[in-house]
Each structure stands twice: as C-alpha cells, then as structure tokens.
Design a protein around this nucleic acid. Structure first.
Lengths: 138, 138
DNA sequence: TTACTTACTAATAATCGTTATCCTTAAAGG
DNA sequence: CCTTTAAGGATAACGATTATTAGTAAGTAA
C-alpha cells in the first residue's frame, strides 16, 4: 500500500482520500471486484464519490502497473490489486467466484508455443471455467 | 455448411439469404472476424442488411454451438466458425493477427488444476499475446 | 400456385458500461 | 496562508449491443 502511494508521489500524482479508499477496496480483499463493487465500497465512507472518479483512478492504477484488469465474459472487467501481473484464473460459472490456482505447467506451455511459432510471447490471459466443489454439491 | 443449415432446419429456424451470407462470411476465412467485419462483407451482396440482423444471427449460431465467440481485450468480440470449440489463440499485439497454435500441454494443465482444486472444469479461454515473427523483423 | 401462418428483416430507439467535458475543489510546495 | 494545477463531482457523450415495431418473406399445406 505505502509502496504504491510512493510510486504515485514519485510520478507527481496526488494522494487524495478517494484514491486511498479505492486502493484499500482493491487491496483489502482476495476477491476480484468490479468497478461497481469498488464504487459501492468507497461510497460507504465517501458518499459523494463519483463513479467517474473510480473509473479514472482504477485506470491510473492499471497504467502504473499496480493492478491487473481481468476481461470477463460478460463484458465488465474485474480487477486484482494483490497480484498485478498476468496469472490464471479459475471461475465458477454458477457462483461467479474466482480462484487463483497454481499452474506449474504454464511456463512450459508458453515455451512450447513460442518455440513452435516463433512468436515472442509477452503476456497471456488464461481463464478456466467450471463448477466449484461447493456448487457441485448442490 | 450444409450440416449447419440442417441443424437450423431441425430446430425450426428459417434459412434466409442473410443467414447464409453471414455463415459464409464466418466459414470462408481463417481469420477471426468481428461483427463489424461480417457486416461489411454481407453488405457487399445484400446492401440493405441491418447490423441488428448480423448480431442476432451470430448470437443464434453461437447458441446452437456452431461458432465460437472470442473475448478480445479491446471489448469487441470476434468469432470463429471453423473451430467452434474452445481452443487457445496466439495474438500479435502489433498487427492483431490471430493464430491457432497446437498446444499439447493444455489438457495436462486443466487436469492439474482440476485435481488440485476439486473444480469440474467445463471450458476455458486461453489467449497468448506477443509479437509475430513478421512484426519482429520490422 | 395460392394462401396462410409466423418467424425474420430493416430501421431505429433504448440500454449499458465506459469515457469525455467542464466547472469546482483541494493537494502540494513555497 | 497563498498559488498553482491536478483531481473530484456531475453529467453529457460515446460505442457496442439489445429491444421494439411494423412490414416482409420462408415454410407448409391446400
């Protein structure tokens, strides 16, 4: 948290209560909140906060590489402030919960593709969909 | 092509010139066209075609499982009528070309995750981003 | 062929998530 | 404090998609 604030200061961005609140909403959860969810959370402490501010701040945090944007099938993006680098997600299509599984084979997989195609692979988006154990029981 | 038309007939959907043209636009290419690209192509033969018709038909074809929707980072979806099942894509971030690489490790990867988490994995979306050999030279 | 039923098309309005605009407010540095 | 200027709030605008509606044509049976 403090590191991110320093990074903002270094690049001459201002530290505002709204930005701190948005950052907290993104950092103090292991969920992957949407813009709307961040907005609702921030509004509990700053009721006059504008949705536009949330959009602008989240975009800024993404620009400086401190949060990761996750493209969701339903169109609206979700965000991860705790692991701001590309990593696989496991999404339950019933309850919409998101898990960050360990995937040891991923590096081998990208290596395999790079070798076969000659591409220089710079990033990835790996989303696995399924039913979580809890939803399977119901 | 004829199989897909039969499938439509069986489910009591009607075969119209517009639907045939949209299907052709999706099948007669190894690219992964967007709605807009399908629309432009269809309009060359049926100039009065409505964009809404393209949306509805593409959605219908997706519903019956005959084309695959690819969620793109920029928001707009692209479609694949030749491999209508989930498969990895390799996307050049410079020229936006899309390749369908062979990824032998994918089944192992999903198996690894299923075993570790208890999820029943039903689908996936694996997009690798990089620079293609041709763009690397420039 | 003809007529009938009803799904489909075209045109356009409406919606949704996101971005831009513009004026006001307040963070940062002297 | 005081000044400068980035940031916030409210809302209009935007682009992609979806819904609406009235007219048209695909399928089917006489």
């Amino acid at each position: 948290m403090e590191e991110i604030l320093d990074k903002l200061r270094q690049q001459e961005f201002r530290i505002t209560p709204q930005r701190i609140a948005i950052l907290q909403a993104l950092l103090n959860t292991d969920q992957h909140p949407s813009i709307e969810e961040v907005y609702r959370q921030v509004k509990t402490r700053f009721p006059t906060t504008s949705l536009a501010t949330v959009y602008k701040t989240v975009h800024l945090l993404k620009e400086i590489g401190e949060i990761l944007e996750i493209g969701f099938p339903d169109g609206r993006s979700r965000y991860d402030g705790n692991k701001p680098y590309p990593h696989p997600h496991l999404i339950c299509t019933r309850c919409n919960s998101i898990l960050d599984p360990d995937v040891s084979l991923l590096d081998q997989l990208t290596g395999e593709v790079a070798k076969a195609t000659g591409y220089r692979i710079t990033s990835h988006q790996v989303e696995l969909f399924g039913i979580c154990p809890s939803c399977q029981q119901q």
